[in-house]
């Protein structure tokens, strides 16, 4: 469990990080909390020549009110997200999902930006970013750009960011007043990855679902929006029956993997069951 040799730089500014990445070229990796990257290095599944550590860049850390949006710095730890009153007020779904990430030790080290940029479909936060319509802020040698979460995750462990770009944070629209949320995570042990996770947001009107949003964890190479189930849920009554009926379409857009922890058909079944539960919990919460 000893990584191959690499160089290490720890810039103290975003500009410094972008410059360091530009200089290192394609064999560089960005290091945030290290909770995913370090195991890959130690098992020699990744061989970067340079690690650019974002840990010394104060501007990438913290949560702040940004007008119509909430700004969450990429290097903000899960623990900080979880305990942010702004997050709890404006996007409680993110707090709920973050509470299920790994264990306390990982949550103290791991960062929201690292988790999203790693783009592991078994990670809990990509599906949440999708449901919340988060905008991903990216800096690179050609300047700053913003990507919709839906455009950010392009494949397994792959984002739309170019080599040399750094995820600096995300902007979450503050449009969630009146919505209920739930993150339903199905994992084999408390510390293990989600076999399937469901992020649900429900807006209620007159005793029925006015609008629903559903994001699925680990149901494909990228996080999946379950749009068919969302449409089916719209207008449904809040009782378990109609919500479950809508959830029967939860896996319509998914292409789940078969692996050690579950075969694809079981994942599809779980997605349907868990979506029904997540919708019910979101509607009542």
């Amino acid at each position: 469990m000893i990584p191959a040799p690499f160089d290490y730089v720890r810039p103290d500014s975003l500009a410094g990080a972008v410059a360091a990445l530009a200089e290192a070229g394609e064999d560089a990796k960005v290091l945030a909390g290290g909770q995913s990257l370090l195991p890959l290095l130690r098992m020699r599944l990744a061989y970067p020549e340079v690690l650019v550590d974002l840990g010394g860049i104060a501007e990438l850390r913290g949560v702040r009110d940004d007008g119509d949006f909430l700004w969450i710095g990429a290097a903000t730890t899960h623990y900080e997200v979880l305990h942010s009153s702004l997050v709890r007020e404006h996007c409680a779904l993110l707090a709920r999902a973050t509470a299920t990430v790994a264990d306390p030790a990982v949550r103290h080290r791991g960062t929201i930006g690292g988790s999203l940029a790693h783009a592991d479909p078994a990670g809990d936060l990509p599906a949440v970013a999708l449901v919340l319509d988060a905008r991903m802020a990216v800096s690179g040698p050609d300047g700053v750009r913003e990507l919709a979460a839906a455009d950010f995750f392009v494949d397994y462990l792959t984002t739309a960011m170019d080599d040399g770009e750094v995820l600096t944070g995300l902007r979450v629209p503050k449009v969630w007043a009146g919505w209920g949320f739930h993150y339903e995570k199905f994992a084999r042990t408390a510390q293990s990855w989600a076999v399937v996770g469901v992020a649900a947001a429900v807006r209620e009107r007159d005793g029925a679902v006015a609008e629903a949003r559903i994001g699925l964890t680990n149901m494909g190479a990228v996080p999946v929006r379950a749009r068919a189930a969302e449409s089916a849920a719209a207008g449904a009554g809040l009782a378990a029956g109609p919500l479950r009926a809508a959830a029967e379409q939860a896996d319509a857009e998914a292409a789940p993997p078969s692996d050690l922890h579950a075969q694809a058909d079981y994942r599809r079944h779980l997605a349907r069951v868990l979506t029904g539960r997540a919708l019910a919990a979101a509607a009542s919460g």
Binding site: M43, T189, A190, Q191, W193, L260
Partner: peptide, 14 residues
């Protein structure tokens, strides 16, 4: 199952 991510040892939480 060559890592603890795949070989599941329960903790007190389980």
């Amino acid at each position: 199952t060559s890592t603890m991510a795949d070989y599941l040892l329960p903790s007190s939480a389980d």
